[in-house]
Amino acid sequence: MKTALLVLASTIASLLLGIWIAAYLTVPGIAMSVKGDPLVIYDPEIGAIPNPSSHNRRIYPAIKDRKAFAFDVYTNDRGARVDGPGQKSPARVDILTVGDSFTWGYALENPQTYAATVGRELGASVSNLAMASYGTTQALQILRRNRDLAPKLIVYGMIAHHFERNVMPCAPSYYPFCLDVSHVASDKQGKLRIAPPWSNGVQRLQQQLAGDYYNPVSWLTHGIDVIQGRIEYARATFDEADEPTKDRAMAFLLREMERTAAEMGTQLLVVYLPTNYWGPPKGLAGAIGNIRLLDLTESFARNKELGGPNPYIVGDGHPSAAGNALIANEIVKYVRREGLLK
C-alpha cells in the first residue's frame, strides 16, 4: 500500500510539474496590458470576432526602438470600430472595409485609421469590420455576415502574410500556443473548403493575458488547455503549406469574395498594403483574376524617395498615422477616378 501511494504521489507530482513547466514556466510574458472589455469574443465558425458594443484600452510600455503608447478601441453593436462609446451601426453604409490590423488600425485611435479617413474625405459612411490577426478567410466570413449593410463598395486590405494565414489553423498572437481560427483546408478529393477553428483559442489567450488562473482548479484546467494549444501550434507549424497551396487557397477565397460581392450587387476593391515596403507575393497576379486591385507598393516607395513621413511605426512594421493617411489618399483618388460610389 505504501509503495502504491508513493507511486501515485510521485506520478501526480510529476504531472503537476510537467504542467507548470509546459504551460507556465516556458510561456513568456508580453509587453502589453489591457483595460476594459475583451477585444474579441469566441465564435465557433470564425474563431475570434470583434466584441460588439465594447471599449478596450491597450497599453504598451517602451521597449527598444519603440516609445510607450496606448490606444482605445470602441466598437458599435456590430463590432465595427467607431470613435466613441454607445454608437449604433446604421442599417446601410456606403463602404465596408475588411482586413487585418493594418485596416483595423493597430496603435491608432479610430479617426486616424485609413478607413475612417476615406469616409471623411469622400463624405461616405464606413463600417470598419477588420480585426487584428485576420486573413482573407476571416475577412470573407465577416463580409458574408454583414451583407445586409448593402455597401456600395467593399474594400479588402490585403498584406503578404495573408497567403500564409489563410491556410494556418493558428492566427498570429502574443503567445506560443494556438489562437484557433477558421482556415482553408481540402477534403480527400482535393476540394477546398473553409474549416472551423480546432478549439477555443480566444478563451485560452484571454485567460493567459489576464492572469486568471491562480486558484487550483483554474491553474489545472488552463494549464492543460495551454498544453493542448501548444500541441496544436506545433502541429500547425509542422504541417505548413507550400507556396502553390497558399496561392490556390488565396485564389479560392478571392473568387468567393468576388462571388459574394456580385450577389450583393456591390463593387469590390482589393488594396495591397506593403509590409516594410515589400511588394505582393508572386501568387497574387494569378489569384486576383478580374478583381480590382490597388497595389500601394509604388506609392510607399515614392513617399520614401521623396523624403515623406515614415509610413511605418518604428520598430513595429504596422502603418503609422502617416502611413494610414497615405493609404487613404490613394484609395480616395482611385475611388473618385473609377466612380466606385456612384
Rank of each mutant, 00 (worst) to 15 (best):
M1F: 15
L17T: 14
I21T: 07
A23V: 03
G29H: 11
V34W: 08
G36V: 07
L39E: 13
D43S: 10
P50T: 07
P52Q: 10
P52E: 09
H55E: 10
N56A: 14
I59M: 11
I59Q: 04
P61V: 01
I63N: 03
R78D: 02
A80F: 08
V82H: 00
D83Y: 07
Q87I: 12
S89Q: 08
P90Y: 03
A91K: 14
V93I: 15
V98L: 13
S101H: 07
A107T: 13
N110V: 11
N110Q: 14
A116E: 08
G119K: 01
E121R: 14
G123M: 09
A124I: 09
V126A: 10
M131T: 13
G135R: 04
L143R: 08
R145T: 11
A150P: 01
A150C: 02
K152V: 01
K152R: 15
Y156P: 01
Y156S: 06
G157F: 11
M158P: 01
A160D: 10
E164A: 13
P172E: 12
S173P: 09
F177K: 00
C178G: 13
S182L: 03
V184G: 00
Q189C: 03
K191M: 12
N200I: 08
G201M: 01
R204Y: 04
Q207K: 13
Y213H: 11
Y214T: 04
P216T: 08
L220F: 15
H222M: 12
G223S: 05
I224H: 01
D225C: 04
V226S: 01
V226W: 00
Q228N: 12
G229M: 09
Y233W: 15
R235F: 12
T237C: 02
F238C: 04
F238N: 12
F238M: 13
P244E: 09
M250R: 05
L254K: 02
T260Q: 12
A262E: 14
Q267H: 15
V271E: 06
Y272W: 08
T275R: 11
T275V: 10
Y277G: 13
G279A: 10
G283P: 07
L284Q: 01
G289D: 10
R292I: 02
L294H: 03
D295F: 06
D295P: 05
S299C: 11
S299R: 12
A301N: 14
P309C: 13
N310S: 13
G317F: 04
H318V: 06
A322P: 08
A325L: 13
A328I: 07
A328V: 11
E330V: 06
V332E: 05
K333G: 10
E338T: 01
L341H: 11
